[in-house]
Design a protein around this nucleic acid. Structure first.
Length: 692
RNA sequence: GCCACCGUAGCUCAGUGGUAGAGCACACCCUUGGUAAGGGUGAGGUCGUGGGUUCAAGUCCCAUCGGUGGCUCCA
């Protein structure tokens, strides 16, 4: 009967169906005790699930060989912990309706509908945890039982569980012919939940857990549907892993760009200025400026032309582009001429009328620009273009404004005014592949220089079943191929996502994670067949006929705000020397060395190095501490001895000791070289100090 | 926009109805010290804002603005 192949290559044959638990017991009592679940032909199952046919079986235990928690084990533990939490909350909050409680990357959550007038608050976490502990201590088995679809539905209807019934209907739509429940203990006696499984064998296996946070969610993710309460928790096999997890969260908080932004005085968001509007302090402005210069240099090398365009444009421009009114909800409201407003007021025009007439195009106004493309398009259209002019690449660090929902705004990653490293490439159909490749080469260079390798690439392709797309399908095929090939050449991990293309063309997105694991889209490269059409762009071809160019929108780093936010976290605030707001701080031992310190400073400044002197009356220990807190890459300590020998004594951020002395001229040369090569050569490498 | 939580000195935070606190930062003084904080003194707050309850509100209630986590959204 079943021949079961194990990961070590051996095979066990059984005369009758067995469970994974029995196989584990056959292999050894230690494994039987440690097993949480089983992978049968790669599918995660209950330990108690019967195995009837030949298969490959791997038993899931909490620890991998590398000592990291096993992903499947965490899945089982967290899914099970979600049930335990749901039971605990059901006990404590009568009338709760359960909705859905899956494991997620950092733990699990459970969505539930609370009776009108009740609410869970974070002050309830303690008693929820206590109740959970009680259930876990009882070490009740997770017992699965099944029912044919119709009977199962009937049961749910009788119980009046609206949301579970919906879940069951969805399962039925997906082709399920039966429904399964998991009782936490004995079916009929203990708490149970409609659930596909799988689960850990019993509640006692949940070694450590914690209720983490509260949130609201919408049923089916639809904001017009029921509002649900979502409780987040996490679970691990043991306390040590949980503790490690919590410590990691704490560490992450320290490198959160909002925390570092304040500490290092990089940027400021001011209530009096407005939500989501970033004020770049001098330190942050340096970082942004250095990045922009770096990017600009590369753009020049690639034949881009930089342009400048204003922050507003006529509403009609955006009617032509389609941004207004299609994306009206995410734009600031239009600015209407004062004289016209006065006139309208005299006519008794209401706000509603005004909005309506703006929409109808009866009144013109100006819009804070939500995108730079229309302005760039008008630059393209300002001259007659020949095929010889193409590709024309217009670049601008263009600032745009979008009305983001207030609950979305935060830090540098989601803002209402931001500067894109934008460019629009106007090219011929046959130039798309080359241009897309060029866009990605900039990304590769800049991410490479910054040491950012942990990003993923999404290639958005059209949905083959949809007809919403503009442009010739044959061209789409070519453009999609160009995007896919360029992404492959880039060498980063990428996924193709059909249906994720914009209606006007395929695109490539770059996605990175922040310190708390949230993903952010940085840049994008999009092929666009639509706007050239809307603006009736043309060029004269070699055949002396008029042709329509294709546009490529590209902002590989998205916005300077978000990109710098991600960079702050990437470097934990310790920028490499070439990017650092302050590159060198000169620290005189006492005021006896002030003159020499001033000389060192003057020489650094003459080279364009961003340097300061700390000539306070503190002791050197204090000066080092303060400079280190500000994460200054290099400290040049100077005392009488150094002045005598015309040397400086160097300390580099991240290396917790004095590296030793170096001649002043050597030092200047090394810092200059590091700065101008953007870290190509480094001062620390002159010392036998390793890296930082 | 929705739900929960939070808002006290420049920053980090304590303060459960009875006359506002600490550390750091800041100013001044002493200290002239060789690599992660020497010592002293001082200044600094209508407790986010507006209402209400109360003899009395930082503290309780309502509204509003802002922040955090999530949901939804993101051309």
């Amino acid at each position: 009967m079943p021949a079961i192949r194990l990961p070590d290559g051996s095979t066990r044959t059984y005369d009758a169906p067995v469970t994974a638990a029995e196989v584990a017991a056959d292999i050894g009592p230690g494994l039987a005790k440690a097993a949480l679940g089983a992978k049968v032909d790669g599918v995660l199952r209950d330990l108690a699930a019967p195995i009837e046919t030949d298969c490959e079986l791997a038993l899931v235990t909490a620890k991998t060989r590398e000592g990291e928690p096993d992903a499947d084990a965490l899945f089982l533990l967290r899914h099970s912990a979600a049930h335990v939490m749901a039971e605990a909350i059901t006990n404590l909050f009568p009338g709760v309706q359960l909705v859905y409680g899956p494991p997620v990357e950092q733990g699990f959550y459970y969505d539930m509908a609370l009776p009108e007038g009740t609410a869970i608050s974070s002050e309830d976490f303690d008693r929820i945890e206590q109740e959970m502990s009680r259930i876990i201590e009882e070490d009740r088995p997770f017992s699965r039982y099944e029912m044919p679809l119709a009977r199962g539905m009937e049961k749910l209807r009788t119980e009046g569980s609206k949301y579970k019934l919906d879940n069951a209907e969805r399962a039925a739509d997906a082709g399920s012919t039966e429904l399964s429940w998991y009782a936490t203990g004995t079916p009929g006696t203990h708490w149970e939940d409609l659930c596909r499984g799988p689960h850990a064998p019993s509640t006692g296996r949940i070694g450590a857990f914690k209720v983490m946070s509260l949130a609201s969610s919408y049923w089916h993710g639809d904001e017009n549907s029921d509002r649900l309460t979502r409780v987040y928790g996490t679970a691990f096999a043991d306390r040590k892993q949980l503790k490690q997890h919590l410590e990691r969260l704490e560490e992450a908080r320290k490198r959160d760009h909002r925390v570092l932004g304040r500490q290092l005085r990089l940027f400021h968001i001011d209530e009096q200025v407005g939500q989501g509007l970033i004020l770049w302090s001098p330190n942050g402005a340096v970082v942004r400026q250095q990045l922009q210069e770096f990017i600009s240099e590369e753009l020049r090398k690639q034949g881009y032309h930089q342009v400048f365009t204003p922050h507003i444009g006529k509403l009609d421009l955006y009617r032509t582009s389609g941004h207004f009114p299609y994306y009206q909800d995410s734009q600031y409201t239009p600015i209407v001429d004062r004289v016209q407003i006065d006139e309208l007021a005299r006519e008794g025009c209401s706000c509603g009328d005004l909005a309506n007439r703006l929409e109808q195009g009866e009144i013109d106004g100006y819009l804070l620009k939500p995108m730079n493309c229309p302005h760039h398009i008008r630059i393209y259209a300002s001259e007659q273009r020949s095929y010889r002019d193409l590709p024309l690449r217009l670049a601008e660090f263009g600032t745009v404004y979008r009305w983001e929902q207030s609950g979305e705004i935060g830090g540098l990653t989601r803002v209402r005014g931001f500067t894109q490293d934008d460019a629009h490439l106007f090219c011929r159909e046959d130039q798309i592949a080359e241009e897309v490749r060029g866009c990605l080469s900039i990304v590769k260079l800049i991410f490479g220089t910054l040491g950012m390798h942990d990003y993923r690439v999404r290639v958005g392709l059209r949905d083959p079943d949809s007809t919403k797309y503009v442009g010739d399908p044959a061209n789409w095929d070519k453009a999609e191929r160009a995007c896919r090939d360029a992404a492959r050449e880039l060498g980063a991990k990428f996924t193709e996502e059909p249906g994720e293309a914009a209606f006007y063309g395929p695109k490539i997105d770059f996605v990175v994670k922040d310190v708390i694991g949230r993903e952010w889209q940085l840049g994008t490269v999009q092929v666009d067949y639509n706007l050239p059409e809307r603006f009736e762009l043309e060029y004269i071809g070699a055949d002396n006929a008029r042709h329509r160019p294709v546009m490529i929108h590209r902002a590989p780093f998205g916005s300077m705000e978000r990109f710098v936010g991600v960079l702050i976290e990437h470097f934990a605030g310790a920028f490499p020397c070439w990017l650092a707001p302050e590159q060198v701080r000169v620290l005189p031992i006492s005021d006896k060395s002030e003159a020499y310190a001033a000389e060192v400073l003057a020489k650094l400044k003459a080279l364009g190095i961003r340097a300061t002197v700390d000539d306070g009356s503190e002791r050197i220990q204090a000066k080092v501490k303060v400079a280190t807190d500000m994460k200054v890459p290099y400290l040049a300590v100077v005392g009488p001895r150094d002045a005598e020998n015309r040397e400086v004594s160097i300390r580099a951020f991240g290396i917790e000791r004095n590296l030793g002395s170096i001649g002043l001229d050597d030092f200047l040369e090394a810092v200059d070289a590091e700065n101008s090569s953007r870290g190509g050569t480094r001062l620390v490498d002159r010392f036998d100090a390793g890296t930082h």
